[in-house]
Amino acid sequence: MAAATSKKAMRFLSQFGAFILTRFGFWNSFSMLMLFAERADVKRKPDIQVPYLYADLAATVLCASFMSFGVKRRWFALVSAIHLALSTYVTYASGQVHYGDWLKVRMYSRAMAIIGGYLVLASGAGEVYRQKLRTRSLQSTGQVFLGIYLICMVYTLQHSKEDRLAYLDHIPGGEITIQLLVVVFGVLALSYLSGYYVRVASQILAVLLPLVVLFIDGNIGYWHHTRRVEFWNQLKLIGQNVGIFGAVLILATDG
């Protein structure tokens, strides 16, 4: 009885993770539109030139719609990963908006993690009734992207004054706790990169990420007013971490 209940709980969490990740594209598109509207008020350019921007948004919404309805979910998850990779590269290469180095790490590392999440989804992980064998190579590649994201978290905790202050203001223990988090995130990154104990690492990360979203990312006043991160850019970053949480839930229950 207990085993059956545990199995149902795992299945529910896996479905919940897939629900979050497949619908991430809707929030990403909405937050981007609101961000560029916010910039229009102060006559700042969007990250991508306008004609390409609408094509990018349309592709994102189309892929998210098909994934949400379960239509060729693996295929559209793979397309979403490729599309997001291209979109991130174009954003970085365009040079229309200049970000601080610490903010670039936050933005692009999370985009990489979402790409990894889509690859995990494209592998067949998180499917309730799996009719095809899981593609382990795609899952392993997705785990590597998540590992790189965790390495970036370690880097920011060590070298980014902005991120360190955000953590110091909201966690007890000060510098000792930050160094403990550096060790924890570093070990989790090694797990994802090596492919060993991925489920256990994901279960630990599934506990830590909501706390990061709530207490660190959720401190919008700090990021917006003190660090001058645009309001909708910060909400976009929050949405990305929620999407990463969805990918982690899938790996924690069906990794």
Rank of each mutant, 00 (worst) to 15 (best):
V213K: 02
T177W: 03
G195N: 10
L62A: 14
T141W: 14
D163V: 06
K72Q: 08
Q179C: 06
G17F: 02
K72E: 08
H98W: 10
S65G: 10
R23P: 03
G195S: 10
L165K: 10
N28Q: 10
V105Y: 00
L133D: 15
F76V: 08
Q234D: 09
Y222K: 05
K161D: 09
Q96H: 15
L33P: 03
D47A: 12
A64S: 15
Q96V: 11
H225P: 02
M1K: 13
M107W: 05
E127G: 06
V144A: 08
K161E: 12
A64P: 03
A9S: 11
S137A: 13
S29T: 15
K45L: 15
H159P: 02
T135R: 14
W102T: 02
G174F: 02
R134G: 06
D56W: 08
W27Y: 13
G142Y: 03
L251D: 01
F245E: 02
L78K: 09
G126M: 07
L205T: 02
R11Y: 12
G116W: 01
G174A: 11
V105E: 01
A4E: 14
A2P: 06
N241W: 04
M32T: 13
L209K: 05
S109Q: 07
F69C: 10
M34H: 07
M153K: 07
V229F: 01
G25I: 03
N241R: 07
G243Y: 00
E175K: 13
K8V: 11
A3L: 14
T226N: 09
A55Y: 15
T91A: 13
Y155E: 04
Q139E: 15
G25N: 05
V79L: 15
K236E: 12
R130H: 09
A18T: 14
W223Q: 01
T5D: 10
P46Y: 05
S31G: 05
L249H: 02
